[in-house]
């Protein structure tokens, strides 16, 4: 592997590839992440999109991508990536296409597809060792339809389908571990609010071959209920509180790229968002807040504070 180019913030690009003018909400954390990822991957990419918020990135005749794009469906974007990758390999192998014409194949999917309907297709792609990047913007709900509860909605969060009671009674699915259990070429969590960490991971992923997961928390002002100006703050708080661990799986090990020695209490993160407001008003729900904290604590109890590895 070549040296990492992104050592300091100043190494991040000051011009960006992704075109402006998309239909995403103002302050979209998912779009912020995609913009950062695209700067590193470059335009020699084909994004294979699963139905979700980002379907509306490309609406005829407008696309923000300087490279290519294929819309598939909600359940089968990894299969679309398989078809594109296999076809490119066939064309290269029999001399109908040059190496220079090749593309990095990137699935773009929301959490609803990634951890729900599309999981079967992801499973198949991993089984086949597909050479692709799976880029998931996790906004913790079916965002494009108005933030209904998805497999990635966190415990206690109110959504459009858990709107008036205690919030989601389920727990966020651990998609990272599902991937890691199957020994992919690479897996990492990122967030747009930590662009340097993100750039290093995307660069690393780009240089590897095989199934690679980039799982990004995507703070969503519309679905989570906060002022769009606070997307970066909330992303950072997710990291500082340990709610969203930044980590990577490479060479058979999970290593945390940030391991906050002194974590901020989770309520600092929860109270920024309307979806958790009911845990604080009109009366504070200490039981649920404590449970959320305890789960985060239990996670980090298994992380070695010195080298960031996980037991």
């Amino acid at each position: 592997m070549t040296d990492v180019h992104f050592q300091r913030m100043k190494d991040l690009p000051s011009t960006h590839l992704l075109g402006a003018g998309t239909a995403m909400c103002a302050g979209c954390g998912g779009l912020e992440m995609i913009k950062e990822v695209y700067d590193v991957l470059g335009e020699n990419t084909v994004f294979v999109n699963a139905a979700g918020c980002m379907t509306l990135l490309s609406v005829y005749p407008f696309t923000p991508f300087r490279g290519s794009w294929l819309y598939t469906a909600m359940a089968s974007s990894p299969a679309g990536a398989q078809g594109v990758r296999d076809a490119l390999d066939i064309l290269k192998a029999n001399g109908r296409m040059t190496e220079e014409e090749d593309l990095e194949v990137v699935v773009l999917s929301g959490d609803g597809s990634a951890s729900g309907m599309g999981l079967s297709a992801t499973s198949g792609a991993i089984d086949r060792g597909l050479d692709f990047i799976y880029l998931c913007y996790d906004n913790e709900g079916y965002g494009n339809t108005g933030q209904q509860t998805s497999p990635e909605s966190p415990h206690g969060a109110r959504t459009a389908t858990d709107a008036v009671g205690p919030g989601n009674i389920g727990y966020k699915k651990d998609l990272f571990s599902i991937w890691v259990a199957n020994k992919p070429a690479y897996a990492a969590t990122v967030v747009g609010a930590e662009p340097l960490d993100l750039a290093r991971k995307i660069e690393k992923a780009h240089e590897l071959e095989g199934p690679r997961l980039i799982l990004s928390l995507a703070p969503c002002p519309t679905g989570w209920g906060y002022d769009p100006a606070h997307t970066v703050e909330i992303g950072r708080l997710a990291v500082k509180t340990g709610v969203w661990p930044l980590k990577e799986y490479v060479d058979g090990k999970v290593v945390h790229t940030r391991h906050p020695g002194k974590r901020t209490p989770v309520e600092a993160y929860l109270e920024t968002q309307d979806r958790f407001r009911h845990l604080f008003e009109p009366v504070r729900n200490d039981k649920v807040i404590a449970e959320i904290q305890a789960r985060v604590d239990a996670y980090w109890a298994e992380v070695d504070v010195d080298d960031g590895t996980k037991a």
Partner: peptide, 15 residues
């Protein structure tokens, strides 16, 4: 050089 431009989701700030 980078903060406003990096974080702008819409690539609406160039340097």
């Amino acid at each position: 050089n980078w903060v406003c431009s990096s974080f702008c989701p819409d690539n609406a700030i160039s340097v």
